[in-house]
């Protein structure tokens, strides 16, 4: 049994000849909640997108549970950054969650009775059952974030990758999202979360990766959060930036 959910070797991404991510090699543990932390523009989103094959990296090898992405695609759920979503798009909460039940191998995109049950379960888990017929723009920030979490749940993936799920989300929603994620972890699923706020790291993550256009450090939260480690890794710049943003 492989005990890393994602293994990255020498991953480099360039945008128009400008380096966004410089040869990152890191292993993320399976069955834990991992935080990828760095200030804005430090390449966190780029890291996720390159790992998931959404942008093509210049170099690098990525493995999921020791396999190539193509073999485990259905096991990987991606939750995009909230600001990258078009909230005016004519789509209902239910339809977004039903995307989790899509199957590229199926010719006719039919929704089976089994799928319907799974979708309703996912909606119930994030308490959106009542709001499922709303257009997605008619929700609060926390509710919007939960829609996409429900989609990941409906996919029944064993690895959930989320980009900044706690930005623009009220405290109550943050807690309920975290509770769902912790339940998932206790069921043995792996969770990777991009996050820019250092002050809340201790409550959220079991493992953290510090990123700033290259890998700064990675390790268990308890070890990493010692002030000496942080100072050594970052100097003072990150601490300053992350508090000013939150």
């Amino acid at each position: 049994m492989e005990n890393h959910c994602i293994t990255v070797e020498n991953l480099q991404v360039n945008y128009h000849q400008q380096v966004a991510l410089e040869s990152v090699s890191v292993e993320l543990p399976a069955g834990k909640i991992t935080g990828i932390i760095g200030p804005n523009g430090s390449g966190k989103t780029t890291f996720l997108k390159a790992v998931l094959g959404i942008v093509t990296p210049a170099t690098g090898i990525v493995r999921f549970f020791g396999e190539e992405l193509d073999k485990v695609r259905q096991q990987v759920a991606y939750v995009p950054q909230r600001e990258s979503v078009d909230w005016d798009f004519p789509i209902s909460v239910y339809d977004v969650v039903s995307m989790g039940r899509l199957n590229p191998k199926r010719w006719w995109q039919r929704v089976a009775a089994e799928d319907l049950r799974i979708i309703q379960d996912a909606l119930a888990q994030v308490s959106l059952t009542e709001l499922q017929h709303r257009q997605i723009g008619q929700l609060s920030g926390g509710q919007q974030q939960r829609v996409f979490l429900a989609r990941a749940l409906a996919q029944q993936a064993s690895l959930i990758v989320m980009d900044e799920p706690f930005v623009g989300v009220d405290v109550a929603s943050q807690d309920s999202i975290l509770k769902v994620l912790q339940t998932l972890r206790d069921e043995g699923k792996s969770i990777v979360i991009v996050h820019h706020d250092l002050s809340t790291v201790a409550n959220y993550f079991d493992y953290v990766v510090l990123l700033n256009n290259k890998l700064v450090a990675a390790g268990d939260t308890k070890v990493m959060l010692k002030p000496e480690t942080l100072a050594k890794a970052y100097g003072h710049s990150l601490l300053f930036q992350s508090t000013s943003e939150s």
């Binding site: 991404v13 360039n14 945008y15 128009h16 000849q17 942008v55 093509t56 210049a58 170099t59």
Partner: peptide, 11 residues
């Protein structure tokens, strides 16, 4: 040519 030299790939 420049891109080929630096080995950059984007999409």
């Amino acid at each position: 040519r420049k891109v080929i030299q630096t080995g950059a790939v984007t999409n």
